[in-house]
Design a protein around this nucleic acid. Sequence first.
DNA 1: AAAACTGGCAACCGCCGACAG
DNA 2: GCTGTCGGCGGTTGCCAGTTT
Length: 253
Amino acid sequence: MGRTPCCPKVGLHRGPWSFKEDALLTRYIEKHGEGNWRNLPKKAGLLRCGKSCRLRWMNYLRPDIKRGNITPDEDDLIMRLHSLLGNRWSLIAGRLPGRTDNEIKNHWNSHLCKKLKNRAGETGRAPKSPSVGPDKPRIKIHHPKAIRVSPYSVIPRTDSLDNLLSGTPSPTNQRDELGPSNINIDRNAVDGVAGGVVAPSYGNDHDGFFIPIEEWDNDDMKTLDKLFEEYEKLKRPGDAGQMESFLDSFLLI
DNA sequence: AAAACTGGCAACCGCCGACAG
DNA sequence: GCTGTCGGCGGTTGCCAGTTT
């Protein structure tokens, strides 16, 4: 049957966006809001594919995007989240206000992957990343395929996991896709507690033992929230030393 | 000074779930 | 229930600037 392309490929601009195109897109979205990406280029006077417009807006033009280098704290949080969630960049980005999934993905591929390898080399310990294959991995991370998240999981980044897990829709339009959809957790790995911090793992495809998020027990459900609470606490000035031990605790699973 | 190499990042691609008709 | 469309996702590509040889 074949799927129709999202837009005709002929006669459209490709490659880097010009200042003028950026301005047109920004002005249009400020006036009419996001959505209807297919028709947006025509209405905005752009010779671009709708997908391209969406990507440009989401990854670059959106006013709430944080510019500048990723901080060491963000680095560490990304690594923790990656150990929990695998390559689900949109979920990870949802917990880092102002950062985009693309930015985090790029940062991971260019920096953190190596950092993790180096750290593993220094300690002689197996790396925690699922993408790095030690001889005897303690944890295996399942990488689920991309999912589309229902509108009911559209919640602000600052919402707690309780809200996420109860499926309470948010009144705002900020994205956070840590919704009650496809997250699977390996209960065998959830038991790990190090340094007072619950250290779960995400998924496990070696034995096919998946628990849909709807069936998490209380401990499972609090796990991620706890992680962020700890993180936020330790981010406060004067807690630098604690941050290090907090972070290390996750490498000892 | 120039060529080769490397790293970072924006953009593209194809897949897939949700949803409307 | 089926089909087509839309929007979102992760993976990959390719350009460009910086660094090394």
